[in-house]
Amino acid sequence: MELSHATVTDMKPDTLRVRESVLLRAAVNGDRDAYREIYDIHIKRVFGLCFRLTGERGMAEDAAQEVFIQVWRTLSNFDGRSQFSTWLHSVAANVTISYMRRQKNWLQRMFDIESVTLAEPETSGCSSGVDLEKYILRLPERARVVFVLHAIEGYRHEDIATMLKIASGTSKAQYHRARQLLEDWMGAD
C-alpha cells in the first residue's frame, strides 16, 4: 500500500470508505502497511476518546497504543455489519477502561466520588468562550467516564453499565452529577 496519508485524507467520503474497506481486507491478510494507513486515518479520534476517558496524556497514549495492538489481533472479528469506525471506537472504549482498571488507585479513584481530578489544563480551541474540555478533565473520574461515554460517544446507560460493571441507575446518576458540575462551573465563568 503506497498511497500517502495526505492522499487518503483528501479523498471524498465515498472514496475513503472504499479505500478503507480495501485497507481492512489487506490488513486482515497481514498487510502491516495497510494497517498503518488505517491507524493514520483513525488515531486522532481514538486518541481523543482515550484522553477524555483517562484524563491524562501519558495514560491516553499508552491506552491508544494498546487499542491498535488489540484491534490488529482481532481485526478478523470485524464482520462489516457496522461501520469500521463504530466498531473501532467500541473496542477503544473497552480497551481503555480495561487499561484504567489495571492502573494503581483505579478502585479508589472510581469510588471516591467527591475527589476531583487534578488534570493538566488543556484548551480545546472552543470558539464559544467556554472551555468545556478543561472542565471535563476536572470532573471526578467516574462522572467523567460516564459523561464522555454518554454525552460525547453516544452510548446508552445500559451499555455503559455493562462496560463499567455498574448499575444503569448509577450511570444515570453519575451523568447527571457530571452535567450539574459542568453547568455550575460554566455558569461561574
Binding site: I43, K44, R45, F47, G48, L49, F51, R57, A60, E61, A64, S124, G125, C126, S127, S128, L132, E133, I152
Partner: peptide, 8 residues
C-alpha cells in the same frame, strides 16, 4: 462544538 479529535 467540542472537537472529538486530538493529536498525541
Amino acid at each position: 462544538k467540542l472537537e472529538k479529535e486530538k493529536v498525541p
